[in-house]
């Protein structure tokens, strides 16, 4: 340390207060704290899998695999087949995706290609507003307002379609109800639109400007440019975004629980009442006090967990790869 001509020797460099002795330890301590917080994620995920599987073993042991995957659900007679609910989960999610996919991609394209920067903000705000409505409010509105209104519409459609070959299998049928697979799918579609839209935007934004300009320079219209330049680049990523939406739709519980009709049915008639995994868990858990009933519900929770993890893993991997390829390449 230089001694000569220092301005103020009372403050030698590196002088420190009483904390100094602890400083190296504090530095390590903070790192350990941060690491622990990060590890918590892994711990929780593992615990979820382990503890819930544990609680559901009686379901598998009593029913056996054939019982678990049977179509017979009758708690009063100790029948706990899960297939109606798996079916319902898949069907409603499929309906949700079929509706949400074109809508979300359309809005994403609207925001990235059509609308000038200034006006994009309000549209994004509206989408955020859509996302902020809680699931239970969608369910409330769904069962008290939408379902009754749709009931009459469904009836008209169903009766109008009697005898028509393909369509009546889906949209015909006798037991038409406002609370049905289709209504649930509809509401799920609305609920997953925000996230599919925002992820699609992210993917589309990585399309290089050069490619866009190249298409325009060849005299393409905007739609042709989208087909030629945007679509090839973002196709994979959008698949990932849609998968993510699928995962959300499958797990969305409360809205589905309220409007799906709560009756375990396997049918192609989309206007019929039905049931799904999260819905039955939410609705019946209160009554399933002990035994195999509860184990069955928790077991379906495990199924749901595994399904959504797999779908999310794939979705994130696909989106991540497509974004990285476009940016980093």
């Amino acid at each position: 340390m230089s001694i000569t001509a220092k301005a103020d020797p009372a403050i030698p460099a590196g002088s420190a207060g009483p904390l100094s002795k602890r400083r190296p330890f504090g530095d390590r301590g903070f790192q350990i704290l941060a690491l622990s917080a990060g590890l918590l994620v892994l711990v929780i995920l593992v615990l979820i899998a382990v503890s819930m599987t544990q609680q559901s073993t009686t379901w598998f042991s009593t029913e056996g695999w054939s019982g678990v995957f049977s179509t017979d659900w009758d708690p009063a007679h100790n029948k706990f087949g899960a297939v109606p609910f798996i079916y319902g989960t898949l069907i409603t999610a499929a309906i949700a995706i079929v509706i949400a996919y074109p809508v979300s991609v359309g809005i994403a394209l609207l925001l990235t290609e059509v609308v000038p920067r200034r006006f994009a903000r309000p549209i994004v705000y509206v989408i955020d507003l859509l996302a902020v409505v809680p699931s239970v409010v969608w369910g409330l509105w769904g069962i008290l307002v939408l379902a009754p209104w749709l009931q009459t519409i469904y009836q008209d459609i169903a009766s109008g379609l009697t005898g028509v070959p393909v369509l009546s299998t889906f949209f015909g049928g006798q037991g038409v109800s406002g609370a049905s697979f289709f209504t649930a799918g509809l509401i799920l579609a609305v609920m997953i639109t925000p996230i599919v839209t925002s992820l699609s935007r992210e993917v589309i934004a990585t399309v290089p400007v050069i490619d866009r300009e190249g298409a325009y320079a060849l005299g393409a219209t905007r739609w042709e440019m989208i087909q030629g330049a945007v679509w090839p680049h973002s196709q994979a990523g959008i698949v990932g975004a849609v998968l993510l939406g699928l995962g959300r739709a499958m797990g969305e519980t409360i809205a589905a629980a309220l409007v799906i009709g709560s009756s375990p049915t396997i049918t192609t008639h989309l206007f019929s009442t039905g049931y799904s995994m999260p819905a039955v868990i939410a609705n019946q858990f209160g009554e399933a006090t002990v035994g195999v009933f509860r184990a069955a519900l928790i077991g379906m929770g495990v199924l749901l967990f595994i399904l959504t993890i797999i779908i999310n893993l794939s979705a994130r991997a696909i989106v991540g790869r497509s974004v990285r390829r476009a940016r980093g390449a």
């Binding site: 230089s2 000569t4 020797p9 100094s20």
Partner: peptide
């Protein structure tokens, strides 16, 4: 003394190092 100061980031008494010349 300098090594000692470099090891522990804390204050030591007024450094009794031999004055260095320019």
């Amino acid at each position: 003394k300098v090594t000692a100061k470099l090891q522990v980031p804390e204050t030591t008494a007024t450094p009794a190092v031999a004055p260095a010349t320019a």
